[in-house]
Design a protein around this nucleic acid. Structure first.
Length: 504
RNA sequence: GAGCCGGUAGCUCAGUCGGUAGAGCAACGGCCUUUUAAGCCGUGGGUCCCGGGUUCGAUCCCCGGCCGGCUCACCA
């Protein structure tokens, strides 16, 4: 039993140090125990404690007569003279505890009253019962202070609202806001199920360089860093694509990588400078195979994580039950503009005029490829709510994709759009080294014309293709955006544990 | 990078037509052995984001800055 005069286990002395450089309201209890608090370690506690959700499930049917122990953070406290009610919380749930003077004894009760505060981490052992209102509750026989909470908890009813604080001190957000805990748990299970699904289909998980000598495989500005020993600049990858395809050349039949990409660009509701992607590549597949596969993958993810295929996102119902609509890029454009593929691909002046009418920013200085893409985004993407495969993109926009088997100006590429967001981007991979070389040269010309984000040439990648890459299809899925949709979140920072913020 | 909005107690928020501020929760002292946003009585707590300006006087008005949010631009 606890005895304030017992063996020293937990002692706070230098409380001033806590206040360095900032004003902190220290809690009365803490001031009181300054220098002198001590606790025996005589109380046994299960280590580590069972997650509370599991705990409650286990004992819900038969709460009587058990001597059980649990642990977690004390998040509410109702003292009623000679009895105390409170709730202990962990990541998975909450359970009520009940402490009676009769049960824990005078000394134990005094200790709890004097030294235990809201926010403390407690271990407790006792028996379960149901209160009048039917709530499963632990009547505490023994308890142990496992860690002291020196700062006050956020407000118990409203939680922690301030977005800045929620992001800067995510631990507070996680303690105070159940919604936030649920989001990150769901994110974890989405990634787990993604991995399970890919593994079960014969994909091999690999890791490729994050520090790269050439940042290629996407159109984006890289972060630059410096390697002291090699005396050279290196780039944080903007995509793993070219390395994963090297592995297909090397004989891996199917590979995937889940990891961070880094793009040195703006931050907003749907962009964080580092973001998580899965990219997977399958030899002997084409983009048609990938569309079917993607439908199966998403159906699996939805069922395994949220338990259904129909969800609500920002007030709109979205149905992930396959099959998804497939519509070609130029078909959509023609629907919106009445102008056909020939117009977009051959009539640069007409296209510029159209972009001007649509208020596309800087339309005078955009490349042909970007003009098409801007017009598409402006007119078409905004209306795609249900999962939709937009297929057969212009070759101009897709330097790594294989030419379409029937249409010479197009490539075999699709994007999966959900709720106006691009969730996946995929294509039959270009495996002809000569065409790839030509595409890189075209990108170089775009770069020379001022497009800073045109793709870099990777000589070794061309050499790899020269060894022969089997027909292959590959796809990238933005995990953060997928999590946003499945958690009904409209800001990417709410699905990234520690989003980037300016230092305060 | 631009425009708009915001920053007041630990948290959630109110307020001051310019006279240095309040509530609830949290904290602290009491009462209370089935409460659950517990209740009741009492107490303490603020560089009103920072720096300048105007003014007898600025938390409030003006200018600049910092941080955040939204929209736009760039991008996935």
């Amino acid at each position: 039993m606890q005895d304030p005069e017992g063996i020293e286990v937990l002692v706070y002395t230098d409380l001033e140090g806590l206040e360095t450089g900032r004003k902190v309201r220290l809690r009365g209890t803490v001031k009181r125990i300054e220098g002198k608090l001590s606790i025996t370690d005589a109380v046994p506690s299960e280590d580590p404690p069972t997650p509370l959700k599991e705990f409650k499930k286990r004992y819900d049917d038969d709460p009587k007569g058990e001597s059980v122990s649990l642990g977690g953070r004390l998040v509410s406290l109702r003292t009623m003279g000679k009895a105390i009610f409170g709730h202990i919380q962990d990541l998975t749930g909450k359970i009520q505890i009940y402490i009676r003077k009769d049960t824990v004894g005078d000394e134990g009760f005094r200790f709890f009253n004097e030294f235990i505060d809201l926010g403390d981490i407690l271990g407790a052992r006792g028996s379960l019962f149901r209160t009048r209102t039917g709530e499963l509750t632990l009547e505490v026989h023994e308890f142990k202070l496992l860690a002291k909470c020196l700062r006050p908890l956020p407000e118990k009813w409203h939680g922690l609202r301030d977005t800045e604080l929620r992001h800067r001190q995510r631990y507070l957000d996680l303690i105070a806001n159940p919604r936030s805990r649920e989001t990150f748990l769901l994110r974890s299970s989405i990634i787990k199920e993604l991995r399970n699904f890919l593994d079960s289909r014969g994909f091999i998980e690999v890791e490729t360089p994050i520090l790269q000598q050439v940042a290629s495989g996407a159109n984006a500005k890289p972060f630059v860093t410096y390697h002291n020993y090699l005396e050279m600049n290196l780039y944080l990858r903007i995509a793993p694509e070219l390395y994963l395809k090297r592995l297909i050349v090397g004989g891996f039949p199917r590979v995937y990588e889940i990891g961070r990409n880094f793009r040195n660009e703006g931050v907003d509701r749907t962009h964080n400078p580092e973001f998580t992607m899965v990219e997977f590549y399958a030899g002997y597949w084409d983009y048609e195979d990938l569309m079917t596969f993607t439908e199966e993958l998403l159906e699996h993810l939805l069922i395994k994580t949220v338990g259904k295929t129909k969800i609500t996102y920002q007030g709109k119902e979205i149905n992930f039950k396959p099959p998804y609509r497939r519509v070609s890029y130029f078909e959509l454009l023609e629907e919106k503009t009445g102008k056909d593929k020939e117009f977009f691909l051959r009539n640069l002046e007409g296209l510029k005029a159209l972009a001007g009418e649509l208020d596309v920013a800087n339309y005078q200085s955009l490349s042909h490829a970007r003009l098409i893409d801007k017009v598409f985004e402006k007119l078409c993407e905004e209306e795609l709510i249900q999962p939709t495969f937009v297929i057969d993109f212009p070759a101009l926009l897709s330097p790594l994709a294989k030419p379409h088997r029937k249409e010479p100006d197009l490539v075999e590429r699709f994007e999966l759009i959900v709720a106006t967001h691009e969730i996946a981007n995929a294509y039959t991979e270009l495996n002809d080294p000569r065409i790839q070389e030509e595409r890189f040269k075209q990108q170089l010309r775009e770069r020379e014309m001022g497009d800073e984000e045109a793709m870099e040439t990777d000589e070794d990648f061309i050499r790899a293709l020269e060894m022969g890459m089997p027909p292959t299809a590959g796809e990238g899925i933005g995990i953060d955006r997928l999590v946003m949709i499945l958690t009904d979140t409209d800001n990417i920072r709410d699905v990234i544990l520690f989003p980037h913020l300016r230092p305060k």
